[in-house]
């Protein structure tokens, strides 16, 4: 398939999923109401009906956040799989998500008592610090000075560090007062229910810059596929490239995690399927994965709201239910990756 055709199809589906995601929910909103709300929003009219208000203030930011976060998680997966040369790696496995969750939970529970405030950016910054600590811990503990990072060591170190940071989150929700504790738990399972226009703005800003940075490094990331010494022979400073990739991944995933909690497996599934469709060129993978990840998380969010309607399932549970079978399939089918 032509790359441009693929992009076009994916973008179209993502758009439709976004609309679908805005349609579904406890209150049903018609397409006419959506159109009217958007018109009023453009013309800055204030007399909104309840449905129009729900659409503009709750549904639309939630749908948009779902698309952006889904896309970002998938791009994080592309970067980490390219870096560790393994299709079973994703940001959740290398500690980024659990570290970010811990950083954010720490701010949730103790943030008021520490004098550290930078407005709306405090939470994403706290998450990024946590994500960075966990990710670089995994990276440096799994790395060996004499041989290349083995995937088994990486996974085991990842399990240990994830356990550590998740138990940290558990501890925080244990000592937290009740409403805080509930929100930590829910958010630890991943949810888009907290979406608002501020989180949409921050996530899109961070996501866009990280993707541009990722695309600028796509060529270098490609050379890693030949192995580290070959990449070096093609003029790449491999160490700096790796640190750069890890940093982009940490910021991208941590900021998303700060607003939506831990959503696993999107970064694992999406790049894998895209590779089957369009090959492994990192540039195409980054662009395609962003759109496909958006589609996947948009669909998962619709499912999360439909399965137990009118109650809502944490979205992380939905992605995990889809992701685990894919993960096990990959483990059993492609054991030549080890």
């Amino acid at each position: 398939m032509k790359t441009k055709t693929l992009y076009l199809i994916l973008a179209l589906i993502a758009f439709l999923v976004g609309i679908g995601s805005a349609l579904f929910g406890a209150v049903s909103i018609s397409l006419e109401e959506m159109a009217a709300a958007i018109q009023k929003w453009i013309s800055q009219t204030d007399d909104l009906s309840l449905n129009e208000q729900i659409f503009l203030d709750i549904r639309l930011p939630r749908a948009v956040l779902g698309l952006i976060v889904g896309g970002s998680l998938a791009v994080g997966g592309v970067l980490m799989q390219g870096l560790f040369l393994n299709p079973i790696v994703e940001p959740g496995l290398v500690g980024t998500s659990s570290g970010a969750a811990f950083g954010a939970a720490l701010y949730f529970t103790l943030g008021t008592s520490i004098d550290f405030h930078t407005g709306e950016f405090t939470l994403p910054i706290a998450a990024s610090i946590g994500g960075a600590i966990a990710t670089f811990l995994v990276y440096f503990l799994a790395e060996s000075p004499t041989r290349k990072t083995s995937i088994v060591t990486l996974l085991l170190v990842g399990i240990a560090i994830n356990a550590l940071f998740f138990s940290g989150v558990g501890f925080l929700s244990y000592i937290a007062r009740d409403p805080q504790a509930r929100s930590i738990t829910f958010w630890n399972l991943g949810t888009l229910s907290g979406a608002n226009w501020i989180s949409v703005a921050i996530c899109s800003l961070v996501s866009l810059s990280c993707i541009v940075l990722g695309l600028r490094n796509a060529k270098q990331l490609n050379t890693l596929m030949l192995g580290e010494s070959e990449a070096g022979n093609l003029g790449i400073k491999v160490k700096t490239l790796k640190i750069r990739m890890l940093t982009i991944n940490v910021i991208l995933i941590s900021v998303c995690t700060a607003f939506t909690g831990v959503i696993a497996f999107v970064g694992l599934i999406v790049p894998h399927f895209l590779r089957i469709i369009s090959g492994s060129d990192s540039r195409q993978l980054i662009i395609g994965s962003f759109m496909m990840g958006a589609i996947l998380l948009g669909l998962a969010d619709i499912l999360a709201r439909l399965l137990l309607a009118p109650a809502e399932l944490p979205i992380g549970i939905v992605t995990t239910m889809v992701g685990v079978p894919v993960f096990i399939y990959l483990l059993r089918k492609h054991n030549n990756y080890f």
């Binding site: 393994n86 192995g227 022979n233 060129d281 030549n336």
Partner: peptide
């Protein structure tokens, strides 16, 4: 300068 090595092992389709 180019280097041709032995045993280049790729895992991803290209």
């Amino acid at each position: 300068q180019a280097v041709l090595s032995q045993n280049i092992h790729m895992v991803f389709p290209m």
